[in-house]
């Protein structure tokens, strides 16, 4: 927690506008053929916490997470759901142990995320901006 804050500070100090590309930029993606348009941070947070189950057009939305050690995952949650790792764990504990549901499926790498999202018109995931290709569509840059 503290070391990542320090790292961010160092990056912030080192970067003076020109090198902003060096900073990680998480983007929320769906398959290129998914008809959904841009979505708000709240709508995406609701899907990733199981509070909403569909895209705004009513089609089922299947969120996909990266693994617990992924820095992209922490960046996504800090920016979108507003929860750190412990808060997210506490949140899912309440959902699991009340029998209301299960957390989203996890994939082991950015590569797997790209494959899982691009091959499924119901999937929604997140990647670093540098990791996307034409098989994916960005619906939010938080």
């Amino acid at each position: 927690m503290q070391s990542s804050a320090i790292r961010k500070l160092i990056i912030a100090l080192a970067c003076t506008g020109a090198c902003s590309a060096a900073q990680a930029d998480v983007v929320i993606v769906v398959a290129a053929n998914n008809p959904v348009g841009n979505m708000s941070k709240d709508q995406i947070a609701q899907i990733f916490t199981g509070k909403a189950v569909a895209f705004p057009d009513g089609r089922k939305a299947v969120p996909i997470e990266q693994g617990p050690t992924s820095p992209t995952r922490s960046e996504f949650h800090v920016k979108v759901t507003g929860k750190d790792a412990a808060q997210l764990k506490a949140y899912w504990s309440k959902v699991i142990f009340s029998g209301a549901g299960q957390p989203p499926r996890e994939v082991g790498s950015a590569d797997e995320m790209r494959k899982a999202v691009s091959s499924d018109a119901n999937a929604i995931g997140y990647l670093e901006k540098s990791q996307i290709d034409s098989s994916l569509k960005v619906i939010l840059t938080p």
Binding site: V53, A54, K60, K89, A90, Y91, S93, K94, F97, S98, G99, A100
Partner: peptide, 27 residues
């Protein structure tokens, strides 16, 4: 349907805000 679920069996009583997970202290 997506979003519409039925459960049958034994479940935690959902009377109050945290009733159905009140024993999971970590939550």
């Amino acid at each position: 349907y997506p979003g519409l679920a039925v459960r049958v069996g034994r479940m935690a009583m959902p009377i109050y805000l945290v009733s159905d997970y009140r024993r999971a202290g970590y939550a």
